[in-house]
Design a protein around this nucleic acid. Structure first.
Length: 876
RNA sequence: GUUGGUGUAGCUCAGUCGGUUAGAGUACCUGCUUGACAUGCAGGGGGUCGGUGGUUCGAAUCCACUCAUCAACACCA
């Protein structure tokens, strides 16, 4: 690639798209079945094609991209398989909205075929938008393998699983009380019902007893359902009502005779202790009805209007009917009391309308045996949650699971592979539409009208995308996948179902780890929601700050599984860091020629060894954090190294050599600077792929792509050099501190005298003090340092002659502060060492360390006392 | 109601196995047109680690209780 000069300022627009195109063109994201390498696989949680990606996706995708890029550099055959989800109900709602808006037509005005044509158009449009967004974000997916939950392969897998489970008796069709959304016009699974607190009321209604003056008071929150009452239940041992058991009550407004039955389910403490039983519209009543063989009267149409069973009320919407019925009860003297009452009511997770329990003929998956598989697999450690606490949500859901209602009365989705003979009514479940009836041989056959729950196909995603049910090389090689990255809100929708599906169909858990990402909240910590309109479009952030800044902001300063806040200040900080790296790189690369800069181990100076030592520790730390999925920690580690060690100390210390006429010295320094920069780019690449690749392309003699480079090895450590450098850093910092306190301008260079056991050693590094502490001459102190201001370190005293600038009072205050610090340390150390418990029980090594520290602080204290005495004399 | 999370500097958050003087970023204050970067550099102030009690030689860290806050699940005639 052509080497061009780096722009003066960091401007991500100049290169992000170009870099992405370069990767695509070279096939850098592609993964192949390769027996020479170990696979590392992630399947992308397929975004719904309902719209565009939000910050949550950006976080989720960034985490996966970091892991994939890291593993790719580590030498794995890294496959990140992308795709999108048809999101049956959610998408259907949106498409119908659009048709209504644009054409004024409702679902009733459309044929299924017309609808599906529009739906596929929608898919093309929004699927494309999503893919484009993912590319802007830098996702390194193997796009050749992109999939869609309703494509041919995924559909084949869906039919295969359905038929197999049906043949085993694990899928059945039956009439049950299910969750019905009257707005969406379909059944829903239990997981799709969200309980929301609503302000409601308790209506107490008086039911007359047949052939008696007695009355039974019953409290209900849903008076309209009385139209479907078929019994009154009381507790068998309830002395208040014992005498009524076996008698009949008369249903107000309707006049139906209701048997008064006894059932243990009734709670004597609740309400009045008597319960109206409406088997068709309440799950508990449904069970009571089954136990007592009660009639079940459905009073609602699919649109939740009162049906013909409701007599006068027929045709009314359920809420209007409630109002009307309450009015009539009041008028006719049946209404005893109305009390405000807050309670939680199931709502549709898509349209947020109240769910109606409704008896209907649906398809179900029997869950017991497969739930057991999923529980055992996690129990055995075949799949682990990161962080592990989320296993509780998983276990809890599976332990309380009920059969899964999978049929939906929708058009957008996989049509159920059940076929009915119109002649004899026989039902056939098969992979393809039968040409004739198996039973009567008739040829009039139609397919079930319903489609499957969208999660039925999502459940197969880890293997349907790899070619299953065909025996593909990809299945052998890439399955099971390594890690699934997802939010905690879909553990039971998705993780649970992928687990039992993988275990049941393939016999192996679909992934080893489930990494849970937190939720991205707004700056105030609120959930992002449409009603608050507090979301931020990731593309807008990329437009303004660059994709690297967005990615980095989402990751840095976060810990696994906890929520994060989206704050523009954090994006700015990330962008500033990118800018810092850009400038440091430009500074170095601008001085290099297109040739190699080997490092001569023999010629390394103190700072070189120190930075190499720090680098190897950083590499080690980043790697350790990444292996533990602590992405935020890994990112912060690199920042700390780049900014504080490399830029603020090492580059500053290198300048002298860089401006030197001595070419060996200059090139030696350039070699180290370059080597460290290269590894910085590698360590940072998973987090900030664009800027690092762009800089990499400017390195001398560069031919390869950073994305395909080999992750750095952990290098040598130089503990002695680190220790000495630490002392120099402390000395330099203290000098800066002193000069700042004394208001000495940087332009005024000062002299420094050294004293103490380490003076000679430190003397050799006068250039460091010159470069970083505005200090001109470093020399060993003579006996008398006169008025010079002292800085006392362990083993090293520095004296700064401040001449006319000295302010004895200020100086006294400064030393007194130092003394107080030292004395509080002495107190702390003594406290420990005077404690026989500590001496006796703490590790000997620790006691020794404490002892050494105390001694050094005592020496400092003594010295400080001396200096303070001198100052005092001068003040007086 | 059940379960879980969180509580550390003004704000956002780290803090590993209990053992350095509890850290970072940001905000704030002071100084700096030093040759990569003012999207920067140097320096500074700011913390009873929610509270109480306990275990321990030693607790931000472990245990109990408690307060605050968030979430998931469940139930309510």
């Amino acid at each position: 690639m052509e080497k061009h000069i780096m722009d003066k300022t960091y401007d991500p627009h100049q290169f992000e798209d170009r870099i992405y195109a370069m990767w695509m063109e070279s096939g850098d994201f592609n993964a192949e079945v390769n027996p020479d390498k170990k696979p590392f696989t992630i399947v992308l949680p397929p975004p719904n094609i309902t719209g565009s990606l939000h910050e949550g996706h950006a976080l989720n995708h960034t985490m996966q991209d970091i892991l994939i890029r890291y593993k790719r550099m580590k030498g794995f055959e890294a496959l990140w398989l992308p795709g999108t989800d048809h999101a049956s109900i959610a998408t259907e709602v949106k498409i119908l909205d659009k048709i209504r808006r644009e054409e004024g037509r409702n679902k009733e005005d459309l044929t299924r075929e017309e609808f599906l044509e529009k739906a596929w158009q929608w898919k093309e449009e929004y699927g494309g938008t999503i893919v484009n967004q993912m590319k802007k974000l830098g996702n390194s997916c193997d796009w050749r393998r992109e999939r869609f939950t309703m494509d041919e392969g995924c559909s084949k897998a869906v039919v295969e699983v359905f038929v197999k489970l049906f043949n085993e008796g694990l899928i059945y069709r039956g009439t049950r009380l299910i969750n019905w959304c009257s707005d969406c016009g379909t059944s829903l699974s239990d997981a799709e019902v969200e309980h929301e607190d609503v302000q409601g009321a308790f209506y107490s209604i008086s039911y007359p007893i047949e052939g008696s003056q007695e009355k039974l008071i019953i409290a209900t929150t849903r008076p309209e359902t009385m139209l479907g009452d078929t019994a009154i239940a009381v507790h068998p041992q309830d002395s208040r009502y014992e005498n009524l058991i076996g008698k009949y009550a008369l249903l107000p407004l309707v006049g139906r005779r209701l048997p008064i039955i006894a059932d243990e389910y009734v709670d004597r403490e609740l309400g009045t202790g008597a319960l109206k039983v409406t088997p068709a519209h309440d799950p508990n009543d449904y069970e009571i009805g089954k136990r007592h063989n009660l009639e079940s009267i459905n009073i609602f149409t699919p649109k939740a209007l009162i049906n013909e069973e409701g007599g006068n009320y027929a045709g009314l919407d359920r809420f209007l009917a409630r109002k009307k019925i309450v009015e009539d009860l009041k008028e006719q003297g049946y209404l005893v009391e109305v009390k405000n009452h807050n309670h939680s009511v199931g709502h549709c997770y898509r349209c947020h309308q109240p769910i109606e329990p409704r008896e209907s003929l649906q398809w179900f998956v029997q869950m017991d045996s497969m739930a057991k598989l999923a529980l055992e697999s996690v129990e055995k450690g075949e799949m682990e949650f990161v962080p592990e606490r989320f296993v509780k949500i998983y276990d809890h859901w599976l332990e309380n699971i009920k059969d899964w209602c999978i049929s939906r009365q929708l058009w957008w989705g996989h049509r159920i592979p059940a076929y009915y003979c119109e002649d004899c009514g026989e039902m056939m479940v098969s992979r393809e539409m039968p040409l004739s009836c198996e039973k009567c041989g008739g040829g009039h056959i139609h397919q079930d009208e319903d489609v499957l729950d969208t999660w039925f196909s999502s459940a197969l995603w880890p293997f349907s995308t790899l070619g299953w049910p065909d025996a593909t090389p990809e299945m052998d090689y890439f399955y099971p996948t390594d890690v699934l990255v997802t939010g905690y809100d879909i553990i039971f929708f998705w993780v649970v179902r992928m687990m039992f599906s993988g275990l049941k169909q393939i016999g192996v858990a679909p992934f080893h780890h489930t990494l849970i990402n937190g939720i991205v909240r707004d700056a105030r910590g609120r959930k992002i929601s449409k009603s608050l309109n507090n979301g931020t479009d990731p593309l807008e952030i990329i437009e303004e700050y660059g994709a690297d800044a967005l990615r980095f902001m989402l990751i840095s300063g976060t810990s696994v599984g906890s929520d994060t806040r989206f704050m523009i200040e954090k994006v700015e900080a990330a962008r500033n860091f990118a800018n810092k790296l850009w400038n440091a790189s430009r500074f170095l690369l601008g001085s290099l020629e297109d040739k190699s800069y080997p490092i001569d181990e023999q010629a390394l100076d103190l700072a070189d060894k120190w930075i190499l030592s720090k680098l190897s520790q950083t590499t080690q730390g980043v790697e350790k954090s990444l292996e533990r999925y602590e992405l935020g920690q890994a990112a912060d580690r690199v920042v700390d190294f780049v900014w504080n060690d490399y830029c603020d100390w090492f580059i500053e210390l290198s300048k002298e050599a860089l401006y030197s006429e001595n070419m060996d010295k200059k090139e030696g320094k350039q070699g180290v600077l370059l080597f460290v920069l290269e590894e910085i780019l590698q360590l940072l690449h998973p987090f900030m792929p664009f800027i690092t690749e762009e800089i990499w392309q400017h390195l001398p003699q560069r031919k390869s792509h950073l994305i395909k480079s080999t992750w750095p090895q952990v290098g040598s450590n130089y503990p002695q050099e680190e220790e000495l450098m630490g002392l120099l850093q402390e000395a330099i910092t203290r000098i800066r501190n002193l000069r700042a306190e004394m208001d000495i301008p940087p332009s005024k260079k000062g002299r420094v005298f050294l004293q103490g056991p380490r003076a000679q050693e430190v003397l050799a590094y006068g250039s460091y003090f010159k470069a970083l502490a505005s200090s001109e001459e470093l020399s060993i102190a003579r006996e008398d340092v006169g008025d010079a201001s002292p800085i006392l370190l362990d083993g090293l005293s520095l004296y700064l002659p401040l001449d006319e600038l000295i302010d004895h009072e200020k100086e006294f205050q400064r030393l007194k502060k130092d003394l107080e610090k030292v004395q509080s340390e002495i107190k702390r150390g003594r406290g420990k060492l005077d404690n026989p418990g500590f001496i006796g029980k703490a590790p000997a090594e620790l006691v020794e360390k404490e002892e050494e520290k105390l001694q050094s602080f005592l020496r400092l204290e003594e010295e400080l006392h001396g200096k303070i005495k001198l100052i005092k004399e001068k003040i007086q």
